[in-house]
Amino acid sequence: MDLPYESEGEGARAGAGAGAGEGAAPALSERELAVLAVERQGWAGPGAKERAIREQLGISPTRYYQLLNALLDDERALVQDPVTVNRLRRVREGLRGRR
């Protein structure tokens, strides 16, 4: 799945909720869904994952982790992929506890 994403802005979200009922939260964007999909995969090592981030999403690993961290606080992501989001929330909380 090649999804070239150059920038994240208001325009990227403008059509995300098209067709959703009034008052309903807009659906996750294609980029957000792609970030969750990358995170669901198993990786042989950090180099493979970072290469896939660049190739599949067209963004830097730093930007990827910024987007991923924001998704962990987004209830829409929890509804979309509760297993992945809850797992990553536990990992994040464990890391915060060690600091």
Rank of each mutant, 00 (worst) to 15 (best):
G9Q: 00
Q66L: 09
R13I: 09
G9L: 09
Q66S: 12
R76L: 12
R40T: 12
K49N: 00
A18D: 09
R87D: 12
L71F: 08
W43V: 12
Y65H: 07
L28Q: 06
G97I: 07
L72V: 01
V91K: 06
R13N: 12
V38R: 07
V38N: 05
L88E: 08
T84I: 09
E39V: 14
R31A: 07
L95C: 08
Y65P: 04
L33G: 13
Q41K: 15
L57K: 05
A18C: 07
L68I: 02
R96L: 14
L33Q: 15
N86T: 15
R98M: 13
A12V: 14
P4D: 06
R13W: 06
Y64D: 00
L3I: 04
E32W: 06
G45V: 04
G9Y: 05
G45Y: 09
A34P: 02
K49R: 08
L68E: 03
G94R: 01
A37K: 10
Y65S: 02
S60R: 07
A37W: 12
V91I: 03
L57H: 04
E32H: 03
G58H: 02
T62K: 13
A37C: 15
E39I: 08
G17I: 00
P46S: 12
G11I: 03
I53W: 04
L3A: 02
E50N: 10
R63M: 07
S7A: 13
V35R: 04
L78Q: 11
R76K: 09
P4N: 02
L72G: 05
P46V: 15
D74F: 10
N69L: 06
A12G: 15
L33K: 15
R31P: 00
A52S: 03
T62W: 01
R89L: 11
L78D: 13
G47V: 02
A37F: 10
G94D: 11
V83D: 14
V79Q: 15
L71D: 09
A16H: 01
L95G: 03
A24T: 08
K49S: 06
V35M: 00
L95Q: 04
G23P: 05
A25D: 15
V85M: 04
P82T: 03
V83R: 13
R13V: 12
E93D: 10
A16V: 07
D81V: 09
R31C: 03
L78K: 12
G19H: 02
E22T: 12
A34E: 12
M1W: 02
R51S: 02
E22V: 11
E22K: 14
G23H: 13
Q56I: 06
R92T: 04
G9P: 03
D73L: 14
Q66G: 05
T84K: 02
D74Y: 07
E10M: 10
P82E: 11
E55M: 08
D74H: 13
P26R: 10
G58A: 01
E32V: 00
T84V: 10
G47I: 03
E8M: 13
N69A: 10
A12C: 06
A14D: 03
I59M: 07
V83L: 14
V91P: 00
S29Y: 05
G58Y: 00
L33Y: 04
T62Y: 08
G42E: 14
E55F: 03
Q56N: 10
L71C: 06
W43K: 02
R40V: 14
G11F: 11
V83A: 15
L71W: 10
N69G: 08
E10K: 11
L28H: 02
L71A: 05
P82C: 08
L78C: 11
